[in-house]
Amino acid sequence: MATLRFVLLSGSAGILLLIYVPVLWLALLSVGAEPLSGLPGGFTTVWYLALASNRNWVQPAISSIEIALCVALLCMLAALAAGRGLPRMRRARVPITLAFLLPLGIPGTVTGLMLFAGYRFVLGIHMGFWSLVLSHFVWAFPFALISMLVVTSRFDHGLLDAAADLGASPRQRFWQIECPLLMPGLVGAGLFGFLLSFTELPRSIFVSGAIQTLPLFNWAEASTQSSQVPLIFCLNTLLTVLSTAASVAMIGLLGRTTR
C-alpha cells in the first residue's frame, strides 16, 4: 500500500513537471541566441527588444484586456446576484444551479460552434466584441458562481437579522455587513472572469468575427512556422509570469478566507 502510494504520488509529481518543465524551457529559449534550434544557449535579450518594437501583438492584447475586464465585471455582478439568491431559493435552486453550471459539461469547441450558430441564426447577433464577451462569460460564470457559492452558502443570515435588530436599513445591511463578508467570493469571481477570458481560445475561434484576441494571435503564430516564433516565446513567457502572479494573488486570497 505504502509503495503503491509512493509510486502514484511520484507519478502525479511527474505530471506537474510535465506542465512546468516545458514552460520553463520556453522561458529559457526566449533568452537564447537560437531559440528555433530547440536548445538554449548564449544569453540574449534581443528577442524581447524585438517584441517591444513589434506592434502586431499590441492590438490583440488590448482587445483581450478590454474583453476580460467586461467579463470580470459581468461575472462579479452575476455571481453576486446568483450567489445570494440561490441559497434562498427552494424548489428552483437545483435546476437553476445546474443550468448555470451546464457550460462545464460541454467541450469548448462544441460550445463555440453552438453559440456561433445560435447567436448568428437565432438571436441575430453579429460576431465581434460583444459575442466574445458573452461567450467568455458563459465559460467563466460557472467558476465565478462556484467561487461565490463557497462563501454565500456558509453565510450566516442571523448576522443580517442582528444588523436589522440594531436598526440598520436594508441598504446599510447590504453595504456594511453582507458585502464585506462576501468580498473574498466576489474578488474570486472577478479573478476567474478576467483570467479565464484572457486565456480563452476554443470559443473565441468561432465567435470572434473580425476581432483578434491575444490567445487567437498566439495560436495563429504558433501554428505557422513563421519567423515571428521567437517573439511568441517571449510574449508567452511574459504571459506565464503574469498568470503565475495572478494565481499567487488568488491563493493568498483563498488562504485568507479559509483562516
Binding site: D156, G158, L159, D161, A162, A163, A164, D165, L166, G167, A168, S169, P170, I177, L181
Partner: peptide, 15 residues
C-alpha cells in the same frame, strides 16, 4: 430596524 427593541441572539450573531 425601526422597532425600539434589541436582541441578544442565541449564538450572539457578532459581526
Amino acid at each position: 430596524d425601526r422597532r425600539p427593541v434589541a436582541t441578544v441572539f442565541q449564538h450572539y450573531a457578532l459581526f
